[in-house]
Design a protein around this nucleic acid. Structure first.
Lengths: 116, 116
DNA sequence: CTCTCCCTTGGAGTGCGCTCTAAGTCAAAT
DNA sequence: ATTTGACTTAGAGCGCACTCCAAGGGAGAG
């Protein structure tokens, strides 16, 4: 699969795909005869997972750490899981924070006409 | 109230308070005899509101627009309210997105030991 | 008077996450 | 044979939201 197809399927730009590879987020993408990147299905699944992590606000640095652990093999499962659990807590906290702030916003909108 | 006190009470740094003033987010803070900023209670309340907007992910540019409308007086109430309503929709959407992603994360963590 | 300390300003620098450019390669189409 | 267009790399640039710096200005303590 070409970089353009991978871009379309992952929702990332070709620029970003190259960038992710450069920083080690996605490792050893195959090349075809002309040296062009040739993505496979597992790359797309990995990109989908990375995209989930990003969209939940995980910093690139943490994603790199996760990718590194993944490359190191199965004995890093526990650490990877711990990393995801810490992240899950952050996401939960963020949802809680946003939910609270939403109520403040609701109140502000409802009482408009009072002071700004 | 000095800039340090305002910083402490708003949770923003003195640097950020000056920056916010420079870009027009907080207008005409009073000065004392030596030209030092002298914040009052209404400034603190306004900063608290700004902080809410920021923490819910409103871009600085939109906050500036809101601040500008506020300076223009009461006839901008409707537009301000509309701006807040649009923002509220974005916050709701973000909460929904995070909540969905959280489930994916939960699943990933629960089934760990399967494929990474 | 000098030292210390916090304040002022304009402007430069930082970190993050991309995003784009330049220079060059290769393959298919005309 | 040439043109077109998508690809490659290393590296530069950008937008956002700060964050810090340099140079200078009082005010109070010793």
């Amino acid at each position: 699969m070409t970089i353009q197809e991978a871009a379309r399927r992952s929702g990332l730009s070709a620029h970003t795909l190259r960038y992710y590879e450069r920083i080690g987020l996605i490792h050893s993408v195959g090349r075809d005869g002309s040296g062009h990147r040739d993505y496979v299905e597992t790359d797309i699944r990995w990109l989908a997972f990375l995209t989930k992590l990003r969209s939940t606000g995980m910093p690139i640095a943490d994603m790199c750490r996760y990718a590194e652990l993944r490359r190191m093999g199965e004995h890093t499962f526990a650490e990877r899981q711990a990393l995801l659990e810490r992240h899950r807590e952050r996401v939960r906290a963020r949802i809680a924070e946003l939910t609270e702030d939403l109520q403040v916003l609701d109140h502000k909108i409802a009482t408009y006409g009072g002071r700004a």
